[in-house]
Design a protein around this nucleic acid. Structure first.
Length: 420
DNA sequence: TGCTTGGAAACTTGATACAA
DNA sequence: TTGTATCAAGTTTCCAAGCA
């Protein structure tokens, strides 16, 4: 089965990801980094507060960067996908204990801004593994592990071991916020603690979809990781499923119809514009009928928006066959001809995503305004585009330095990734 | 052997205390 | 006020443990 994306005609043999960044020559070079105030792009690019250490790797010329697995660990999305994971839940009692006001004050004093944003991210996105947290916040996996261990010791997060069958193969541990951590976040914001604790209990007790959530979150982490060294590009907003559901629930009441709830929503800044997108991570566990309903709800919801075609709904599916089926079903669910506002649907496969990353030339548009259905095998013959080629909503010159994953981003974004 | 975690040692750097 | 010593925190590399 050919799962490679269709190359552009006759060009040099660049990967879709390389094409995506070479076209603009926008990579941040070390000289640019010092000139623009970016951290040295090759040295540890982020660290808590202002990193005190920087010279060791430069001093040791032959030093090999530590890797916990073969291959390019820094390329998010290339970690092995989980097939039969078993989560070993560990529930220390003190993680659920209610801290006194004195203890809360003490905790706040001992936590850095980065720690708070880590807690906020775990609250917002439910589950992140150690590798994903490292991509978002730490210069190395080891320093990430040490800090997470400290947060675990303080009872602010759970760190659950993940093993995979057949046999037993250790995978990166899964982290989620504890009730105690949720109270710290609520106290930080000056909010009532009950809703925060409730959500933390929800994540702790109902983790059947943890793998799905980790995979969906990996998409955003990959976006962050891939865009980190590209000037004028970055993930400005990453909203978790809960946040989107909350936002759209009110709208659903207003318009009295079902509202689609994606696995995440984002705003990506590229080429001076903002690309609005919803992510729907499909593991082929839902029937095609259910997918049809979902597509119909997207069409109905976005038709009320001006520039609806610039709201992009991205489906990531497990294989080519599923992508073929989804292309057809989405075309079948096309809006009425009298309706000239409809969101744009795009599909790709998880294999392409792993191989080329989200910025690669992997996105296949669903042509749902044409009369003829997509041909069988569209997944292999369709012309794909890069992420940054998705039509943006508007133009703006605002800097991308505050985007998620940029150096010290958590210091400029105390509310985490959901708040610009 | 491969993979991940975590302990230990070495190193850097900012903050602080203290003497001159 | 300045120079020095010490401490604490953060980071990296090396390596062992544990597992099949």
């Amino acid at each position: 089965m050919n799962t490679s994306p269709m190359p552009n005609s006759g060009g040099p043999s660049l990967t879709p990801f390389e094409e995506a960044i070479v076209q603009t020559d926008d990579r941040i070079t070390p000289s640019d980094a010092s000139a623009t105030g970016y951290e040295d792009a090759t040295a540890p690019s982020f660290a808590p507060r202002h990193s005190r250490r920087r010279a060791l790797q430069e001093a040791k010329v032959d030093a090999q960067r530590f890797r916990t697995r073969n291959g390019q660990a820094s390329q998010a999305g290339r970690s092995p996908s989980l097939t039969h994971p078993i989560v070993l839940r560990d529930l220390p009692a003190h993680a659920d204990a209610r801290p006194s006001q004195t203890q809360l004050t003490k905790l706040h004093r001992s936590l850095t801004q980065r720690d708070l944003v880590i807690l906020q991210s775990l609250y917002d996105y439910r589950y992140l593994n150690t590798l994903q947290l490292q991509e978002l916040f730490f210069p190395s996996l080891r320093s990430c592990q040490i800090r997470l261990h400290q947060l675990k010791t303080l009872g602010l997060i759970y760190v659950w071991k993940v093993i995979e069958t057949p046999g037993v193969r250790r995978r990166h541990s899964m982290c989620l916020i504890s009730a105690r951590g949720a109270r710290v976040i609520a106290d930080w914001h000056g909010d009532d603690q009950r809703a925060y604790v409730e959500r933390s209990h929800e994540a702790r007790d109902h983790c059947w979809h943890a793998v799905h959530d980790l995979e969906a979150n990996q998409f955003f982490v990959s976006l962050v990781s891939r865009s980190r060294e590209i000037r004028r590009q970055g993930l400005q907003i990453w909203s978790g499923e809960e946040q989107v559901r909350e936002e759209r629930r009110e709208r659903a009441r207003e318009i009295k119809q079902r509202i689609p709830t994606p696995d995440g929503r984002g705003i990506y800044r590229a080429n001076g514009g903002r690309i609005f997108f919803d992510l729907d991570w499909d593991r082929a566990t839902e029937s095609l009928q259910r997918m049809r309903q979902k597509i119909a709800s997207y069409v109905a919801y976005f038709k009320q928006y001006r520039d609806a075609d610039k709201h992009h709904v991205l489906f990531v599916v497990p294989n080519d066959d599923r992508e073929d089926s989804l292309q057809y079903e989405t075309w079948r669910g096309r809006p009425d001809y009298s309706l000239d506002t409809c969101c744009s649907f795009w599909t790709t496969t998880s294999d392409r995503l792993r191989r080329w990353g989200p910025l690669g030339t992997i996105w296949l548009k669903v042509e749902n305004r044409v009369e003829k259905p997509p041909p069988i095998g569209i997944t292999r013959v369709g012309q794909r585009v890069a992420f940054k080629q998705l039509p943006p909503m508007d133009d703006t010159d605002r800097s991308t330095a505050d985007c998620i994953g940029k150096p010290f981003w958590w210091e400029r974004r105390p509310g985490g990734g959901q708040v610009a």
